[in-house]
């Protein structure tokens, strides 16, 4: 009887303890969420405002008497159709994709062999060469845009999208070579040695064994080549002033303003349509970007 009573009390105590722990966890969740609310608001509000603006009719946009953060007339796709029918927006998207694809390709053609040589072949001075290449990422475009304008002029690529294909690798190659060399370091050397013993040449060993297991790293490098080109504004502003050759960020920022008039509906539509997919893509790979610049090897 006594024993049973004690057991019952024990169970009650345990239950009480569990409830208290649960309450504590719940309180902690609520506190953390409350703390995050202002950050979420600050981070997301401009994007929400862009989206609302992009789908509002012009009359609704400039009506000062209504609550601005919701629709008072039917949402419209007018700004988007305007972009494609009356501006070079379609060209800008094509240019952006083409530039990104070519820059990625150039970056891989230079960065894969470079990163591999730095990481795997025990070259004397490899560390210093790696750092010298990465230094290119730390020399900001603002120091280079004036002298590079002469280089671009020499190649007769000025005012074409190919000028950007020429100059964007100045920041994608150093970053991606560094990143790829980190990836290649993690591939076990035995795989390669086995291939060499089996009579693959050095190139064969690289192509058949190291590249396939580094596909994740190569994909990451492509994503960064793409997102880093999207972050550029200065080079495109200086080297491309012909409307149908511009990439999206430059086109939206310079061509959708006539005189002093900002057409906010179409501006925000054009910004949103490209900005948000790029941001989402980038956010998936953000951790790798951070560990790429804060440490040598990607964990």
């Amino acid at each position: 009887m006594n024993g049973v009573e004690a057991l019952g009390r024990r169970a009650a105590l345990l239950e009480e303890g569990a409830r208290r722990a649960q309450a504590r966890a719940l309180r902690r969740y609520v506190l953390v969420y409350l703390g995050l609310v202002p950050f979420l608001f600050i981070a997301v509000f401009p994007v929400f405002w862009m989206a609302i603006t992009a789908f509002k009719t012009d009359a609704d946009l400039v009506n000062p008497r209504v609550f601005p953060f919701w629709f008072h007339q039917h949402p419209t796709l007018g700004h988007f159709t305007y972009l494609f029918q009356h501006t070079y927006y379609g060209d800008w998207i094509v240019n952006t994709m083409l530039i990104a694809a070519c820059v990625s390709l150039v970056t891989l053609l230079l960065g894969v062999p470079g990163g591999y040589a730095l990481a795997r072949l025990g070259l004397p001075g490899a560390e210093n060469m790696g750092i010298a290449i990465f230094l290119g990422y730390l020399i900001p475009p603002i120091l280079l845009f004036i002298p590079l304008s002469r280089v671009v002029a020499l190649t007769h690529l000025i005012d074409t999208r190919w000028a950007l294909v020429l100059v964007y690798p100045t920041f994608t190659v150093p970053y991606c070579t560094w990143l790829l060399s980190g990836f290649f370091k993690t591939v076990p050397p035995e795989i390669e040695e086995a291939a060499l013993v089996d009579g693959c040449g050095r190139v064969g060993a690289l192509v058949r064994t190291v590249l396939p297991v580094s596909l994740a790293g190569i994909l990451t490098a492509v994503i960064f080549a793409f997102t880093l080109t999207m972050q550029d504004f200065l080079y495109s502003l200086v080297y491309v002033s012909v409307s149908d050759q511009k990439p999206v960020p430059l086109g939206v920022a310079t061509d959708l303003i006539r005189g002093d008039v900002y057409f906010w509906g179409s501006l925000m539509a054009g910004a949103l349509l490209v900005g948000v997919p790029v941001a989402i893509l980038y956010s998936f790979f953000l951790d790798q970007f951070i560990s790429g610049i804060t440490s040598a090897a990607v964990k």
């Binding site: 995050l36 981070a43 994007v47 603006t53 504004f233 939206v252 925000m268 900005g275 948000v276």
Partner: peptide, 18 residues
């Protein structure tokens, strides 16, 4: 919350201008 960093900078500058 990482949206401000991942959006292309020219695009967010335009959103702020608005």
């Amino acid at each position: 919350v990482v949206l401000p960093w991942t959006l292309p900078v020219a695009i967010s500058a335009l959103a702020w201008k608005w």
